[in-house]
Design a protein around this nucleic acid. Structure first.
Length: 874
RNA sequence: GCGGGCGUGGUGAAAUGGUAUACACACCGGACUUAAAAUCCGGAGGCUUCGGCCAUGCGGGUUCAAGUCCCGCCGCCCGCACCA
C-alpha cells in the first residue's frame, strides 16, 4: 500500500549498490559523446565530512546527474588534498603518524561521502599523499626546473626563537608563536620558487576570456596580479648622504609621477639595503628595523599596524630642482617585496602618505586641483584627494591633467642623465610575487633536489624518483623531522658521486591542488598525464568551490596549467572554463570559560525569554556564544551531516542543502529545516507512489482536455523551468519550482490514486510522475529510483535521458498584465498574448480604476512594456 | 590598512530596471482523533479613520517605474601570499 512511509535507510544503500554494479558513473576516456567535466574542490581529510562539503558535493552531483541525463559523457571524480599541517599537529598531540592519521581520516570520510549517493567515479580516486601522485609531481617539478620555471632565492619566514621552527601565518597570534608564546621574528631563508611572475601578463590578460567565472573573482584576480604602469625614478642622494651610505641614488617605483611636485619625503623598507647600511651605525634605527621585523611576514598585520617611520638623516634631491631636498625615512608600511622597496610620499594625494606626513609634521602641498575648487584656497584637510583635476603648484605641469603630466614627467626624465643612466624609465610593475613553495615540514611532497658541496643543487634523476618520505620519524620536538632524520638526508651526489644531502624542504600543499584536476583525467598513467586524455577532458567545464579560494588556489592552478603546457604535459592553458563559488556554511562559535573553542555537540543551548545561553556539557560551566563564522576545524564550529543522513537519509540532506539559500550565499546550518524537508520527502513519496501504483503499464501522454490538460501544462512548464534553473545552478529556485508543482498536482494525482481518473488523466498522470521524478532525480536520486520502480519499471532511472517538454504546453494564450497608475500597481488586465499596442491601450483606458484615476482627462503618458507591464501616468 | 562581497517579514529567501515579499521553515486557526503525533485545509509585512498609507540597512540622486542603476554613509563577512 502506498501510504507506507518511505524508508531511506533501506532504499538508499540498495540503489547505491545498483548504481555501483552497473558502473554508471565510471567515465570512459574513449566515449564518443560530448564530454562534461564537473568537479568540486577536493576536501582536506580532516576526519569528518562536514555540512559545507555536503553542500559543495551535492551541487556538483546535481550538475553531474543532470548533464548525464542530458546526454553528456560526464567526468565527476573525487580525491583528497591530503598533505598539510593538521596531520603533523595531530602527530605531535596524539602520537599518531601523519600517514596513519591521514589515511584513517580518508577511509572515514569516503564512507561518509558514499552514504550521500553521489554519482562519483570512484575508480579515479587518489590522495595527494599517495606516492604514486607525488612521484609525478616531482617529475613535473624537474621538468619545470629544466624549463627555467623554478628558481631559488631568499625570502622571509616567521621564526619562533624558542621552538626554533618556522611558523605558518596562522600559527602567529598577535605577533607570538602559538605554542611557545615567544615574540616571532622574521628570518631570511633560501627557498624554492615557481616563477609565476613570468606569466603575470598572460595570467592578467587571459582573465578576459574567463567569461563563465563570477565577475568578482575575476576582479579579485586582477587586483591580486596588480598590473600597474609607472616609472622607476632614481633619486639622487645629496653629497653628504651619498658619502654616508656609499650609494648615489635610490630607485623608486611610482605610478603617480604627475604628483612629483607634491612630494615631501622618501620612505624605504626596513629591509632596504640602504636601511640596513644605515642601521649599522645607528643603534636606534637598528632597533626600529628589528621592531618592524617582529611584526612577522603577514601583509595584513603589517598594514593594520600604526604607520611609523624613522628619519635616517639621509637627504635626496628633487629630480627637477637640485636645491630642493627631501628627507629619507625608514617606514614600516613600505614592503621590500613590492616595486623597489622605496616610495616617494605625496601626502596631498595618498591617504597613507598623508597620515604619515601629519604624524611627522611634513609639508602637505596639493598638486591636483579638483574641478570647481579655487587654487588659492584649496587645502588638504584630513583626507587626501585622489581624484581627477588640474595640476597646480607644479611649475611646468600647471594646467595639465594628471595623465598629461605623467607623460610630461616621464619623457623629460627619460632624457635626463643621472650617474650615467637615465633618471627614469617607464616600467610595467606587477604586485604579484613569485610563488614560494618551500616548507620546512615533513608532511608534504619532497622537493627532488640534492645539495652537493662540489656540484651545488643537483636535481634527482628521474630514474631515482620517487623521493619517498621516510616513515620512521619522530614528532617529539618542533621543527622538521626530515632535517634530523639519521639517514634519509644523506645521499651521494648523482653528478660526482660524492657525499651530499637531500633537500629537506617539502612543497607547499597548493602545488598538490594545482594539478589534481588534470591527474584525474588519467590517474593510472606512469607519466604525470596521458596527454590525449588531459586534452580531451580539460578544461573543467564546471568547477565548484568556496569563495575563500578565489585568489590563491585558482591563480596557482592557472599558472601550473600554463607551466604544464610549457613542459609539454597538456595543451590547454586555462584549467577551469566555468567557475562557481558557493557560499560558506557558517555556524555559531562557542568558547568555554577558559577560552577554548567548543564544538556544537559540546554545549547545551537554552533560551530564556529570548536570552540565549550556552553551557559546556562536560564542566557545567557557562560558555560564550560567538558570532556566525565559517565552519572550520580550528574554531570547532563544525556540524556533521551524518546526523541528518542517519535519521532522515541522504535525499533529505541533499534537498535540504540546496533549498532555500541561494548557492553562492553563506548558509547557516540549523536543525529546524531538516525535519520539514523530510516531511516534504515523505509527502512526495506518498503522492508519487500512490498514483504510480495505478499507472503501471499506462502509456504517458500529454493531457488533452480539462484537468488532464491543466496537469500537463503545469508539469511541462515546471520541467522547462527546473532544467533552466539547474543550468544556471539556481538550485534554490529549482527547489521552489518543484514545491509549487507538487502543490498543483496533489489534487489530480490524489484522484488517480483513488482510482477516480479517466484515461486522459491517467495518461497525463503517468507522464507527470515520470517528469517529476526526472526533475527531482538530480537532487533526490534514491527516492526517484524507488518511484520509478513503483511504476513497474526495472531499469535504472539514473541511466535515462532528461525528458523533453512540449513548447505548445508552456505558452499561455492569455496573459495578465499588471496595470500601474503613476508607478503603483492598481489592477490587472487580462488579454490575449498577441494583442497589439493599440488593443492594449484601448483596453487599459476602459478599465474602471483607470477611468476613475483619469477623471475625464487624457493620460500624460502611457507606457506599455510588451508582455510585462502597463503604466498610466496621470 | 588594502582588495572583494553581502544587507528584503519572526527565519531561510524570490523578483531580465516593470505586480516587492513567490517557495519554504517556524507560528496561529480549523478538520480528522477519546487524545496526541502524522496528515489535510486555511491565515498572516507594519499601520489604518478601511479611502488608503508606509515598508527591501541609513541618507541623497537618475527614471514613467529602483530591492535592482549612481553618489555618500553604517553594519557584517571573505581574502591578503606558510590554514586548506
Amino acid at each position: 500500500m502506498a501510504s507506507e512511509r518511505y524508508n531511506p535507510r533501506a532504499a538508499e544503500p540498495r540503489w547505491q549498490k545498483a548504481w555501483d554494479a552497473a558502473k554508471l558513473f565510471e567515465a570512459k576516456n574513449d566515449d564518443p559523446r560530448p564530454k562534461y567535466y564537473v568537479l568540486e574542490m577536493f576536501p582536506y581529510p580532516s576526519g569528518n565530512i562536514h555540512i559545507g562539503h555536503t553542500r559543495n558535493y551535492t551541487m556538483g552531483d546535481v550538475v553531474a546527474r543532470y548533464k548525464r541525463a542530458a546526454g553528456y559523457n560526464v567526468l565527476h571524480p573525487m580525491g583528497w588534498d591530503a598533505f598539510g599541517m593538521p596531520a603533523e599537529n595531530a602527530a605531535m598531540q596524539n602520537k599518531v603518524h601523519p600517514k596513519d592519521w591521514t589515511y584513517k581520516n580518508i577511509d572515514n570520510m569516503r564512507a561518509q561521502l558514499k552514504t550521500m549517493g553521489l554519482s562519483i567515479d570512484w575508480s579515479r580516486e587518489f590522495a595527494t599523499c599517495d606516492v604514486d601522485y607525488y612521484h609525478r609531481q616531482q617529475m613535473l617539478f624537474l621538468d619545470m626546473l629544466d624549463k627555467g620555471l623554478v628558481t631559488r632565492k631568499t625570502s622571509k619566514v616567521n621564526w619562533d626563537p624558542e621552538d626554533l621552527t618556522v611558523l605558518a601565518n596562522e600559527q602567529v597570534i598577535d605577533g607570538r608563536g602559538w605554542r611557545s608564546g615567544a615574540l616571532v621574528e622574521q628570518r631570511e631563508l633560501t627557498q624554492w620558487f615557481f616563477k609565476i611572475t613570468d606569466f603575470a601578463q598572460d595570467l592578467n590578460d587571459a582573465i578576459d576570456t574567463l567569461d563563465q567565472w563570477p565577475e568578482k573573482v575575476r576582479t579579485m584576480q586582477r587586483n591580486w596580479i596588480g598590473r600597474s604602469e609607472g616609472l622607476i625614478l632614481r633619486w639622487k642622494l645629496d653629497e653628504a648622504s651619498a658619502e654616508a651610505s656609499g650609494v648615489k641614488t635610490i630607485p623608486v617605483f611610482t605610478t603617480r609621477p604627475d604628483t612629483l611636485f607634491g612630494a615631501s619625503f622618501l620612505a624605504i623598507a626596513a629591509d632596504h639595503p640602504l636601511a640596513r647600511k644605515a642601521a649599522e651605525t645607528d643603534a636606534e634605527l637598528a632597533a626600529f628595523c628589528d621592531e618592524c621585523r617582529r611584526m612577522g611576514t603577514s601583509v595584513a598585520a603589517l598594514e593594520t599596524a600604526e604607520k611609523r617611520g624613522y628619519r635616517t638623516g639621509l637627504q635626496v634631491e628633487h629630480p627637477f630642482d637640485p636645491n630642493w631636498t627631501l628627507p629619507v625615512y625608514v617606514a614600516n608600511f613600505v614592503l621590500m617585496e613590492y616595486g623597489t622597496g622605496a616610495v616617494f610620499g605625496c601626502p596631498g594625494h595618498d591617504q597613507r602618505d598623508l597620515d604619515f606626513a601629519r604624524k611627522y609634521d611634513l609639508p602637505v602641498t596639493p598638486v591636483v586641483l579638483p574641478v570647481g575648487e579655487d587654487p588659492m584656497t584649496f587645502t588638504i584637510g584630513a583626507e587626501a584627494y585622489v581624484g581627477e583635476g588640474t595640476m597646480v603648484n607644479s611649475r611646468f605641469l600647471d594646467g595639465m591633467n594628471p595623465e598629461a603630466a605623467f607623460q610630461e614627467v616621464a619623457s623629460r626624465l627619460e632624457k635626463t642623465e643621472l650617474e650615467g643612466a637615465p633618471q627614469a624609465e617607464r616600467k610595467i610593475n606587477f604586485r604579484l610575487r613569485d610563488w614560494g613553495i618551500s616548507r620546512q615540514r615533513y608532511w608534504g611532497c619532497p622537493i627532488p633536489i640534492i645539495h652537493c658541496e662540489a656540484c651545488g643543487t643537483v636535481p634527482v634523476p628521474k630514474k631515482d624518483l620517487p623521493v619517498k618520505l621516510p616513515d620512521d620519524v619522530e614528532f617529539d620536538r618542533p621543527g622538521n623531522p626530515l632535517d634530523r632524520h639519521p639517514t634519509w638526508r644523506h645521499v651521494s651526489c648523482p653528478k660526482c658521486g660524492g657525499a651530499a644531502h637531500r633537500e629537506t624542504d617539502t612543497m607547499d600543499t597548493f602545488v598538490d591542488s594545482s594539478w589534481y584536476f588534470t591527474r584525474f583525467t588519467a590517474p593510472w598513467e606512469k607519466e604525470p598525464t596521458d596527454k590525449a586524455a588531459a586534452n580531451g577532458w580539460l578544461p573543467v567545464d564546471q568547477y565548484i568551490g568556496g569563495i575563500e579560494h578565489a585568489i590563491l588556489h585558482l591563480l596557482y592552478s592557472r599558472f601550473f596549467t600554463r607551466a604544464m603546457q610549457a613542459t609539454g604535459h597538456v595543451d590547454v592553458s586555462e584549467p577551469f572554463k566555468g567557475l562557481f563559488t558557493q557560499g560558506m556554511v557558517v555556524h555559531e562559535t562557542y568558547k568555554s570559560a577558559d577560552g577554548k573553542w567548543l564544538s556544537p555537540s559540546e554545549v547545551r543551548l537554552s533560551n530564556d525569554d529570548g536570552v540565549r545561553s550556552a553551557v559546556e556539557i562536560a564542566t557545567g560551566k557557562l560558555a560564550t556564544i560567538g558570532g556566525l563564522e565559517k565552519m572550520s576545524k580550528s574554531k570547532k564550529n563544525v556540524v556533521s551531516p551524518e546526523e541528518i543522513t542517519e535519521s532522515y537519509g541522504a535525499d533529505t540532506a541533499r534537498w535540504f542543502m540546496l533549498s532555500d539559500s541561494p548557492p553562492e550565499r553563506d548558509v547557516e546550518w540549523t536543525e529546524d529545516g531538516a525535519a520539514g524537508v523530510h516531511r516534504f520527502v515523505q509527502r512526495l513519496w506518498r503522492l508519487l507512489s500512490g498514483a504510480g501504483e495505478k499507472l503501471v503499464n499506462i502509456a504517458p501522454a500529454n493531457g488533452q482536455a480539462g484537468d488532464a490538460l491543466e496537469l500537463s501544462r503545469a508539469v511541462h512548464k515546471a520541467l522547462k523551468a527546473v532544467g533552466d534553473d539547474i543550468e544556471k545552478l539556481a538550485f534554490n529556485r529549482a527547489v521552489a519550482r518543484v514545491h509549487e508543482l507538487v502543490n498543483a498536482i496533489a489534487a489530480p494525482l490524489g484522484r488517480v490514486a483513488e482510482g477516480n481518473a479517466d484515461a486522459d488523466l491517467r495518461a497525463s498522470a503517468r507522464q507527470c510522475v515520470e517528469f517529476v521524478i526526472a526533475m527531482v532525480a538530480p537532487f533526490m536520486p534514491h527516492l526517484a529510483e524507488e518511484v520509478w520502480a513503483t511504476l513497474g519499471e526495472s531499469d535504472l532511472l539514473a541511466a535515462r535521458a532528461w525528458p523533453k517538454f512540449d513548447p505548445a504546453l508552456v505558452i499561455d494564450n492569455e496573459i495578465v498584465l499588471p496595470v500601474q497608475i503613476n508607478g503603483k500597481k492598481r489592477g490587472d488586465l487580462t488579454i490575449t498574448r498577441d494583442a497589439d499596442q493599440a488593443a492594449i491601450q484601448s483596453a487599459v483606458l476602459s478599465l474602471d480604476f483607470v477611468v476613475k484615476a483619469l477623471e475625464g482627462k487624457e493620460p500624460r503618458k502611457l507606457i506599455i512594456v510588451p508582455q510585462r507591464i502597463v503604466n498610466v501616468v496621470v
